[in-house]
């Protein structure tokens, strides 16, 4: 579904991704772990199409398309979703209005009729219930004055609404208390099926207790230096990253 080959990217002359390769198939959950500054968010942003990054090498294919050729909105249309590490506040645009626009733009991209107000609201209520989102939040400006946890939950709520084929969750677990984490994980598990896939970026193994990964990768200094199964996450939690770095240096 997603095939990344030797991807290299830089920003302002600074090389950040130094050759990343990763294969994700439908139905899989991948986790990426790694210390701060290793390039996890950069990878997520490059996949979503942020144009501040210059791609200096490699390729990314999504389904049968050259992903790097597509505008961010086209990638969303193809089914890519990024839950931002730092969700953006947009004063004056309500969550409801924002989501309705997004939903119908994606439907338009896929050649579908827009949802009418009734259908949209029905879906909104259904998904809000799963994520235990307070409906009053949705009438407010997007993320404005939301707590850190509310913002993260709002990301997953948007994901549930848009039902992507590949969801990239960038540190969605940071800033969530255990109850919120459970709700978010449940949202992810409800959406998960054999046709879609998840890439979960995290520092902590905690979220992986709730969302079982099929693969765990360690990203360090712009490279994936180790990959393994879910037991690798536990090992990292216990022993830190130094041993992986040492092993990789060999």
């Amino acid at each position: 579904m997603l095939s990344i080959k030797n991807l290299q990217a830089r920003i302002e002359e600074k090389e950040i991704l130094k050759g990343i390769s990763l294969e994700i198939r439908p139905g899989e959950v991948h986790a990426i772990m790694g210390p701060n500054g290793s390039g996890k968010s950069t990878l997520a942003s490059v996949l979503a199409g942020k144009d501040q990054y210059e791609i200096t090498g490699g390729e990314v294919r999504f389904l049968d398309k050259d992903l790097l050729e597509l505008a961010p909105e086209e990638r969303a249309g193809e089914g890519i979703f990024l839950a931002f590490q730092h969700p953006v506040e947009i004063p004056g645009v309500t969550t409801t209005n924002f989501l309705k626009t997004a939903m119908n733009e994606i439907r338009k991209y896929r050649g579908l009729e827009p949802l009418d107000a009734v259908q949209f609201l029905k879906l909104l209520k259904e998904k809000a219930k799963i994520l235990q989102m307070d409906e009053s939040l949705m009438k407010r400006s997007l993320n404005e004055g939301f707590s850190g946890g509310e913002k993260k939950r709002n990301e997953i709520f948007q994901m549930a609404m848009l039902e992507p084929r590949l969801a990239v969750l960038d540190e969605t677990d940071s800033g969530l208390d255990i109850d919120a984490l459970r709700i978010v994980a449940e949202g992810v598990n409800k959406l998960k099926n054999s046709q879609n896939a998840f890439l979960i970026i995290t520092h902590f193994q905690r979220i992986l207790d709730y969302i079982q990964p099929d693969f765990v990768h360690v990203l360090f200094d712009g490279r994936i230096i180790k990959s393994g199964g879910k037991e690798l996450a536990l090992e990292l939690e216990e022993k830190g990253y130094d041993w992986v770095k040492a092993e990789a240096a060999v």
Binding site: E73, G77, F81, V88, P91, F98, A102, M103, E105
Partner: peptide, 28 residues
């Protein structure tokens, strides 16, 4: 706000529509 524009586009909203929403919010 470029960050807001990217956020909206990453949700599938075209650049034109995203700008329109931001302008409307500003004027609102």
């Amino acid at each position: 706000d470029e960050t807001a524009l990217f956020y909206m586009r990453a949700r599938g909203i075209s650049e034109k529509e995203a700008k329109k929403l931001l302008l409307k919010a500003f004027a609102g």
